[in-house]
Design a protein around this nucleic acid. Structure first.
Lengths: 200, 200, 200, 200
DNA sequence: AATGAATGAGACTTCATTCAT
DNA sequence: AATGAATGAAGTCTCATTCAT
């Protein structure tokens, strides 16, 4: 990771990306140990920077976490937007949504964990709700390229709920279930809305 | 909290509900400080028991958290079931679901926080997935008293997603939005599934 | 280890050997964890007795240790005496001494450890010197069945030192070295006492 | 223990010998309370350093003990070597050995205790045997300046055993006994090896 | 500008002992 | 006579932060 010239000792100044590295390392540590297990020491070790750098670059853990989750949310929202932009028409958008639920969103354990850590922070501290709120607004805006606002809102909630159930349920919905669900919400081919039925 | 008369020492045995009190105190501390900020000390103080009681009654923090969240999930699932059992017919069930989303589920900040803390634990450690998994199974079983399995699964995801968006979005769905969404998923009166529309 | 009759639960009164069991368990724990790592809890667990029994039967750890090491020293001295008594003549006694050094004394890691733990206690607290002193007196008395007092004293020290060096030296004396050493001290066949030699 | 002028806070950096002081304090605490009674707190208090320094400078108690006993063994072996180097000839070496047994080795209770504590650790944990083994090798090398290898080995064991018996026996060998023993082992003037005698 | 050394607070846990039964 | 429940003290260790350089 050194700059590559002949510096035999540690590079001193030539590390402008240090701050960035710390943020990425922070996400990695949170993914592995949780916010509860994240400390300056662990992040410093993961980023391979001296411990003193932590409080030099960031005003404490809270500051660092806010930056880290800001980056995480931004990257996630960007992926979401890209998928919707790439979708040529409504059918492609439906495919993209299904794919988001079944592959993208919690494709990795890392994303699953980080998302919930962020939700947890947001649930307790309003400051983090800026992040989740922005994220959700961007998601809805992206969906609205293909769906009307009401449908978008319902679909957005469905995506949220299905990804969670896929991750935390021992009997998660299979892929065709996901497609059926999306189609029922957005209309179009697929199982018709359930007919009224009388409670037994 | 002894009776307050002249007892010079603290009462020794006279607290059979102590273990229960600790569990409740643990939930309170987690709700306020998060799992990250939950320590034996804080829980002991909240439960008004000596610090030594913590590791006497529980095999460490992990054990305590597991019990606490087990209790939490159980209580939550019971509320959910009650609502569904009390619903006389499908229409009442729809009302109940709307009410769950808009009032019950995250009626209090405490429940919101605890739910996400649990999800976060479950996201990282499979051991906690037993809890979330059971919880979700019970929810689905309760919904299936009124809705067919496919609808139930979609509805369950919708409930999950909508409660989250109501809590963490700065522009949450209003109550009528929630009702519209539920009705679209279960069928019946309400905005028809959106007609296909072409991407702009 | 129940008494064998039909008592389905724990035997209450029918355990007169309990005190003995605790003492033996104490030695086992000390052998494994050292005096530093010996606690009432560990001994109770090893003896399979309730924790409360510890302070009921003994006046604290010190009391227990004194009894335990008393038993240990007694057993050890008895072995030593037996070897000397069994030796028919001086040659047999020499053989027995060699055997003591090379096999008996620290034949097991347990004995090695316990001996040194006892020496350590005796080095610090005079109370324990009663034990070591008695032990040494008995050893000398046993040796004096075959050797004169001066030789006995030298031989006794040699036994002590050789067993230690055998145990704690990475290049310990081999068995023939031991025999040679014993023979030089007691006289008789073997390498003659080293001739005077001038320091280089 | 700063210089005492008006410094309101404690001096921060001005103690480069701190690590050394801790090691010495550790030996003092072990000598007084034994390994069993040695804790970070006691050592920190003895060295007059904050408790946090303990695990900052050493990777736990074990690490500290290893360093402390390493220093102890080194000092001890150095004394032994010095005595042998200073001895001009064999007779002087004999005198030096006698003096070692009767004065140097366990001249102080501190040395007696520390030696046995080290032996005890070495008896249980092979890691410490590196220390005892090196120590013994150095002793033998020093003795071999004056005595042949076989004699050296016997003499070394005799020294070991006699120092112990002097310390832990209520009827220890007097100084002339020691001299007689040494002379018998190394040969030369002194009581001849005991003549064979028949067991009664 | 940046960092290694150092520390006090507090984390979890184990322990010997006490007390009501 | 004997014990399980309970506790306060003390154990080791980690941590965020400060300070001199």
């Amino acid at each position: 990771m050194p700059d590559g010239d002949g510096a035999p000792r540690r590079a001193r100044r030539a590390d402008p990306a240090r701050r960035d590295r710390i943020i990425d390392a922070c996400l990695a540590v949170v993914a592995e140990h949780g916010v509860a297990g994240t400390s300056h020491r662990r992040v410093a070790a993961a980023a391979d920077v001296p411990l003193g750098s932590m409080t030099y670059h960031f005003d404490g853990m809270e500051d660092l976490l806010r930056e880290a989750f800001g980056r995480f949310a931004e990257q996630f929202a960007a992926t979401f937007e890209r998928r919707m932009v790439e979708a040529a028409d409504r059918d492609a958008a439906v495919d993209a949504v299904v794919r988001l639920i079944t592959h993208d969103v919690f494709g990795t354990s890392r994303d699953l964990v980080l998302t919930h850590e962020l939700y947890t922070l947001a649930a307790r501290e309003p400051a983090y709700r800026t992040l989740t709120s922005t994220w959700m607004r961007r998601s809805r805006a992206a969906l609205e390229r293909h769906f009307d606002p009401t449908t978008t809102r319902i679909l957005d909630a469905l995506i949220e709920g299905m990804t969670i159930h896929r991750a935390l349920d021992s009997k998660p919905p299979v892929d065709t279930d996901v497609r059926d669900a999306v189609l029922r919400v957005v209309g179009g081919p697929g199982p018709a809305p359930a007919p009224p039925r009388t409670t037994p």
